[in-house]
Design a protein around this nucleic acid. Structure first.
Lengths: 193, 193
DNA sequence: TTGATAAGCGGAGGCGCCCTCCGTATATTG
DNA sequence: CAATATACGGAGGGCGCCTCCGCTTATCAA
């Protein structure tokens, strides 16, 4: 058997998995609330586990951030797939997805902040999230192009970069509603005419 | 008496001024070393004053950052004036000034980081530094144009934005030497031909 | 000069957070 | 139902934050 290399390992304990998940959710809540510096003890409290448990699962602050971030990126990726599968107006689907992305970035601005720590260390994470996000964009775009509703001369990368650019240019001061409006303008521009 | 409004105030004590200056220098050293999170106690230690003294001068972390930053921006502003006054090759002067700016930004990357805190609060600081920096750029540019050595169809704002853009695009990973090289290319492009 | 006093100084102390370590508890396995 | 690998909680030591206050000193008026 191939299990030779990694010895024979027990399967992970159920409570361990549960706690890991609780920690992820708690971290999302605590850090999401605009404070990327929030204490890890607060995260453990919110999760209802001991501080030691937190440290066992995520030995460093960065690892926790990274895990939460991956989680949220995956949520957005899944959302794109779901929207496409659902069918319906493709432009509306793209619009919704971009809105969700912006909403997540703004509500979790603490994340972004914390990420700069994590991203500095692991460029693998950058690559992963970039790929996942452009992949999602590509999916939505393709379904729009196939349906003859969107122009086909724009690359998913450019769309995603535009998202990030719009987001950052507005970043610290402006009302999120303004950002959403800009996104809508942009999406309207993607309509085939 | 007109002193009604502001009472009669003694002039500030000499040791107080000295300590303030020592703190500013210490903070520049401590935070400059790439760590915007460094402890304030370390700053006080480095300055050779008590922690209480630090807090009296700069009640919040942000205020200290802001003061240090203003100080450094002023240094760059003064440098531009000095370079122009000295005469000599104007292109070389601009090049030197941009190098100095980049060097300061990279060695003090901890500053930039800490600044995001301060800048979030005081957009007045943003305005001040922007004005001071573009002012310096304008001065250097004008002296180059007057000497017939630089093209006159580029605005100081654009030059400064280019500086910032180049800097940020390279920011976390790349070798500072690469950034310097890009700056040199850019400056070369400003030569009148 | 000198004494009065406003201004400034240092650092002890209370508190919260970081992280480690280990005795206790429990899920998994045969 | 053991046996044991795994995971759990939280006490505890260390450090940084910030306040508070008794002591020191620069300034000023006489």
């Amino acid at each position: 058997m191939a299990s030779q290399t990694a010895k024979t390992r027990r399967k992970p304990r159920a409570d361990s998995l549960r706690n890991r998940q609780k920690l992820l959710e708690a971290a999302s809540v605590v850090f999401g609330a605009g404070d990327g510096q929030a204490s890890l003890e607060a995260v453990a409290r919110q999760a209802g586990v001991g501080i030691g448990t937190l440290y066992r699962h995520f030995p460093t602050r960065e690892e926790l951030f990274e895990a939460v971030y991956r989680n949220e990126v995956d949520i957005l990726g899944d959302l794109a797939e779901r929207l496409v599968a659902e069918g319906g107006d493709t432009v509306e689907a793209l619009r919704r997805w971009l809105h969700a992305s912006i909403r997540l970035f703004t509500t979790k601005s603490g994340m972004i902040e914390g990420l700069q720590l994590a991203a500095a260390g692991s460029s693998e994470l950058r690559a992963y999230s970039l790929e996942r996000m452009t992949g999602a964009t590509a999916l939505l775009l393709k379904s729009g192009v196939d349906a003859g509703q969107m122009r086909d001369d724009i690359s998913p990368e450019d769309i995603f970069r535009a998202l990030v650019g719009i987001f950052y240019s507005q970043m610290p001061t402006k009302d999120p509603a303004d950002t959403i409006r800009l996104i809508d303008v942009f999406v309207d521009g993607l309509r085939k005419r």
